[in-house]
Design a protein around this nucleic acid. Sequence first.
DNA 1: CTAACAGCAACC
DNA 2: GTTGCTGTTAGG
Length: 742
Amino acid sequence: MKFAEIYLNQTNKRIDHPYDYKIPERFESVIVPGVRVGVTFGNGNRQLEGFVVRVKEETAYPDKIKELEAVIDESPILTKEQIALCLWMKSTYCSLFYEGLYHFTSPVKVVKRLVISEEDPHENRIAFEPYESTEKIYRLERKETVRGSVQKQILELLETRDFTRREICELLGEVGSSLRALEKKGLVSAYERDTSCAVTGGKVRPEEIVLSESGNCLYRQLSEKRRKGTPSFIFEENSETRLMLYCKAVEECLSRGETALMLFPEIGLSLEMRALLYRYFGNAVAVCHGKLSQKERYQIFKRVSCGEIKVLVGSRAALFMPFRKLGLIIVDEERDPSYYSAAMPRYNTITIAQKYADLSDADLIISDEIPSVAAVKKTETGEWTGIHNAPCFVRKKPVPAIVDMQSEMKSGNFDFMSYRLRECLEKTLAEKKTALLLINKRGYASYVFCRSCGYVEKCPTCGVALKYHAGGDVLKCHYCGYTKKRSTTCPECGEKKIKALGLGIDQVYELLKERYPDRHVLKLDGETIASYDDFKRVNHELSEKHWDIILGTRMLLRNFGFQNIGLAAALLIDGDLNHGDYSSSENAYQLYKRFFNRMTENTPCLIQTYEPDNITNEALISENPTDFYRQEFEYRRLMGYPPEKHLVLFSLFHADEAQVANDSHAFFHALKKVCETGAAVEIYEPFLSGVIRGNGQIRWKILLKTKDLNAFKHIIEEVTAAGEIERLASKVSIEIDPPATL
DNA sequence: CTAACAGCAACC
DNA sequence: GTTGCTGTTAGG
């Protein structure tokens, strides 16, 4: 007699635990962990979908047991590592089992409600329906010199392997007519294949991966130092060097007969990069990102599952594909915000990647141009292995100059441009070079400071800058909820000069056009560059046309082909220095450091600020990058922020205001009681955090700090075992070290 | 004595 | 979520 332990596809956390069902003999051969089944549940015998996590010989509920009614999948749709990850996610993020499972199964067709036949038991077996369609695939027949440059490109591409029409167009643009011409000439031929499981095959002639001297140096170090079970962090600024290094590591992984996963931020997957990967890995590589259609994701899912795809490259969506023999995970640009999930559960890709690597016994390589504070800390404590390049390969970078806007005002200049900036800008214009101006002003809440002495009001308990809410004209701490009325008098110098600061990009753009009417001023922000096509178009324009001034938000950090830069200036850094969360210094440092690092050593660089002594400004003009990290470690240690202590954020949701308030307080006391019994965990009073857009739910938050996540995990286990979470009507979620607690 | 109804635990 | 059990109570 065999029994299956299953989780139900439903949204009630009170029944979100495994239930045992008897496996009918006719199903015994197919019921294994990872298949979905149909069950009847409760007194009403409601028909529900379930997911098998375990098969066993005995059950603790022999008198209550029911039989499985139907089988949805002929074979498991998840690997055992993925199932383990699902369970781990549920316990870590306090999410529903199916919320976590959804990430892994979204490419698979979901059966909403099963039709269960009473007469014919065999009808109960519902096959897993693949998508059926065919696609045209192009193959190179022979190579000849052709006149058209597009045709030439197509031939070059097809030399590496066969491609679908869609792939060719994605890489080269709308080239349908050129393809047709080549087909007519007989240089290429087309054939049809089933897309559901089809792969673009053909002759594969992967190119040899040749590392630069610098890349070789890194690769040697990586081979020497990396250890199983310990992630490696690579300190390397040059994205091409990093990419080549990844390719080499992947090549080595494939040679061991294992598969590899390369993760990049959402916007980091350039077409040039894809083309390069096709050249190196031929048909073993595929690209997966959030914008793929359901059908395309399904294809990738199947092809990864059967081992046809050996290298998957993509954004965080790629992490949830069913790899076999996964040997290597690479995460590039570790700090990118697109690695943090917006949907429940709110996971960090790095955390999941690390867990996945552990479960699969795979290597993990992480890197970023400018490492995060947490990453540097981990390489220092040995939690991660740090890989540094030899000093001779590290490029010299420009050192920006600080312009004090306060003394500028004292000398009578109230303009957004300092005398120095004007001077530099005019010199740049006279030399017919381009000036890059960065202003990172976001549209919502800004911060408040004293125009006279630069004083910024901070939260008395949390030490982060209070954020200005124009609605109630109040200052609010986004951690603990501390709120105070905005006063216009400065507590530091007594002058009535406390003002909200807001210099937005649109405002600056108007001013610049007014001031330099016959100059070409280009604005680059989220509005002007909304899509990848916009990016390509603007990038093309940049090579064709001379721009005198390019004004942009952080958009400037995307890989635009800027040329002939005569000046790089941050118009006002202060909004980023005081952004209202503990990592605002780090974010500011990252943003501006990246901006200036892209300049050549001799490009004039300026930072305009009202706080010239701010430690982040000092770190930006320091030639020694470790200065910044030392300061941040100290600040985080004093205030108890990551990486010193972990932040754990509970959120409680419910449509009823009073219900969620009551639940929050009840839960807070339950948590507090457990926290007091031992482990070093600090817990803060619950606070209201607003209305969730869309479903109108009210959200309360409870913040907790701990040095030891394992100790915290025990607390959660204890609280869960006591039924404290199930008891609540409100939905509960856990976020660990969220990037910003806004 | 019974229909009606709210509160609540169980669902394997 | 849905169901059925339990205790309470108004109506007869």
